[in-house]
Simulated assay, not measured.
Amino acid sequence: MKSKFLLDSKQRRKLKFENKQVVLDWISDLDNGLVFENKKMGMSLKYFAIVDEKNNFQYDTFGIEEREGNCVSVVLNQKDEICLLNEYRFMPEKYFLSCPRGFSEINEDRLQCSLREVAEEVGDFEVIETIDLGQFYQNTTFFITLIGVKLVKIKISNVEIGKNQESEDICGIGFYEPDAVKQMIKEGKIECLITLGALMRYFAFVES
């Protein structure tokens, strides 16, 4: 399993000394209000000042801007069971039950992002149907860009943990009856807010 360490100035020097091929993707340009930017991930942290109606300074903060194509997917199999991954997240270093999701690549729309991430994280499948379930903000304190929600119904015959899943730090893939997923939510077993938002969109869609 991959791990993380704080990349302070000492660790940056050590990392570059031990492996001169390492390229750090985050750049900073505070002169233009850019705290950090990562073009590969399509993400930037921008520096802002908040003022009142008379233009009096209140406080400074930052906003996270991402690519428009980022997407989370509610994946159903041919029995209408919901797919949940048992996936390790480095922040805050624990496993989560989560829906497939990911960063879009350059010039990739939400549906393309969704289908690619499902292929990478779930496995080989045949698409039965896709439906746009809308979008939401991950966090209204820092996030500037909406994340899309797609319903992806698939025909899948064999679910195994392969190399793709191992590289994504996924140790389990399961398909669950909707009532079982609701019970997991009730019991606090699903803690990922992006997953909870996507599932809420899905349940509102099917129950309306």
Rank of each mutant, 00 (worst) to 15 (best):
S28C: 12
C71T: 15
E93W: 00
T145S: 14
Q135K: 13
D52S: 06
G102F: 03
D52E: 05
F36L: 14
E168S: 05
N38H: 01
L34N: 09
G42M: 07
C171R: 14
E37M: 11
E87W: 00
A180D: 09
D132V: 10
T130M: 01
C171H: 02
P92K: 12
F90M: 06
V75A: 11
F96L: 15
T130K: 06
F203K: 06
N107S: 14
N56L: 13
E53Y: 08
K2C: 00
L45H: 13
Y47M: 11
E117C: 11
K163W: 05
D132P: 07
K182W: 00
C192L: 10
E37N: 14
I106R: 12
F143P: 04
D31E: 08
F175V: 08
I147N: 04
E37H: 01
E120V: 03
D109R: 12
P100K: 00
T61P: 12
M43P: 05
I190H: 07
E87D: 07
F36H: 10
L111A: 03
C99T: 14
F205K: 04
L34K: 13
E53S: 11
S208W: 00
Q183M: 08
V74E: 07
C83E: 03
K40V: 15
F125H: 10
L146Q: 15
K14T: 12
D132I: 02
E187I: 04
I128C: 00
N19A: 06
K189F: 04
R89W: 07
S208Q: 11
Y202A: 01
F143W: 12
Y47K: 15
C171V: 07
R101M: 14
E117H: 09
K16L: 15
V149P: 05
Q112A: 07
I194F: 14
S98H: 06
K40I: 15
Y88Q: 01
K10C: 08
K186P: 02
D31G: 08
C171E: 08
A119T: 11
L84K: 04
E191Y: 00
Q165R: 10
P100I: 01
L193Q: 15
K39L: 14
E105F: 09
F136R: 03
V74G: 01
F103T: 07
Q165Y: 03
F103P: 02
C99G: 02
F125C: 03
Y137R: 09
